[in-house]
């Protein structure tokens, strides 16, 4: 294939992925609005065995949920969009002849891929279909900004970016972007849900309301917790890999460059989150707010700093 057709194929794949994601978004929206989560009160089966002492209790939860089909369609479409985007990103890398994260456009489409990957993989381990809409919308926005504002032709890397530490560092950062986004979604939803629960006075009253479509605030917090427990060590590693790279390229491992500063701020905020979990009085909504603050710091690094001219890391490649 000629380089031009590789480039064209890559772009077609990214646009197709966006189209499919748009349908996925509608499917998730339909699942949200379409059906209420009706949980029939647990039917209990008991059996007595011959000895007369043992009791086997089994709670059977019957869920009758018309929105479920729509959300299954949403997940299938998201998988399809993921595969299309994966092909788009890989082709971009083949075209450029290097890892596909040399400028903001490439970084954005790869990060979008990372968010989808983390969401879809997490969804295979625990049911997260209800979260779909909150993942698909930011991913679509990211891709939209990428193809309109950030688009750049593939070019070789400036020498400072030619390093295998870059590949490791950015790859880890992309996985983190997925996990942080997931955690921000669950943390944000836990705040919404917590308010509704407080207003209603109990869980049961919530049936029918839109918030009844999402899990309990407690479960959302627990999901946030797990995601960040995974992401924080990885982010620590990301920052260290970046420092090693900086040492190799510029002769100092830490220089308080804006990009480094915001990576540090992100790290400190998430460390505060992990402490908040085990501090009395901070466990609930406050911890969720800290998780959101961490995500905002992360975004700041991702979008804000690339456009600050005085950063050594300004490799946006925008405007050429």
């Amino acid at each position: 294939m000629s380089p031009e057709s590789l480039a064209r194929m890559s772009n077609v794949m990214v646009y197709s992925s966006m189209l499919v994601l748009t349908f996925a978004m509608f499917a998730f929206a339909a699942s949200f609005a379409g059906g209420r989560r009706r949980v029939n009160s647990a039917a209990v089966e008991s059996t007595r065995n011959a000895g007369g002492t043992a009791v086997i209790t089994k709670a059977v939860v019957v869920t009758d949920d018309p929105g479920r089909r729509a959300s299954n369609i949403g997940i299938s479409l998201t998988w399809l969009a993921f595969v299309l985007l994966l092909v788009g990103v890989v082709l971009r890398g083949v075209w450029a002849g290097r890892a596909p994260w040399g400028n903001m456009y490439e970084f954005s489409i790869t990060a979008a891929l990372g968010v989808l990957a983390v969401f879809l993989i997490a969804n295979t381990r625990t049911d997260l279909r209800w979260l779909g809409i909150f993942i698909v919308i930011p991913v679509l926005l990211t891709l939209g900004v990428a193809v309109t504002v950030l688009y750049t032709e593939a070019a070789q890397l400036v020498p400072a970016l030619k390093s295998y530490w870059l590949v490791i560092h950015v790859f880890a950062a992309i996985i983190c972007s997925g996990a942080f986004t997931l955690a921000a979604a669950t943390a944000g939803l836990s705040l919404v849900r917590d308010r509704a629960e407080r207003k209603a006075g109990s869980d049961v009253e919530l049936t029918g309301a839109l918030v009844s479509r999402i899990p309990s605030a407690e479960r959302l917090r627990s999901l946030t917790n797990k995601t960040l427990a995974f992401a924080f060590p990885l982010w620590t590693f990301t920052v260290v890999a970046g420092a090693i790279w900086a040492e190799n390229a510029w002769g100092r491992y830490w220089g308080w460059d804006p990009k480094e500063t915001w990576a540090f701020i992100t790290w400190v905020i998430y460390a505060a989150y992990l402490h908040a979990r085990s501090t009395a009085g901070w466990r609930g909504n406050k911890a969720s707010l800290i998780a959101l603050a961490g995500w905002i710091a992360f975004l700041m690094n991702y979008f804000g700093v690339n456009f600050l001219a005085n950063s050594l890391h300004s490799y946006a490649g925008v405007g050429n």
Partner: peptide, 24 residues
């Protein structure tokens, strides 16, 4: 510890907003 971690995050911000002598 929690409050100090916050303060550390906040105190780091101006360094990315204002030019720094050590850098430029």
């Amino acid at each position: 510890a929690l409050v100090l971690l916050f303060l550390l995050a906040v105190a780091s911000v101006p360094g990315s907003v204002y030019p720094q002598r050590g850098v430029d």
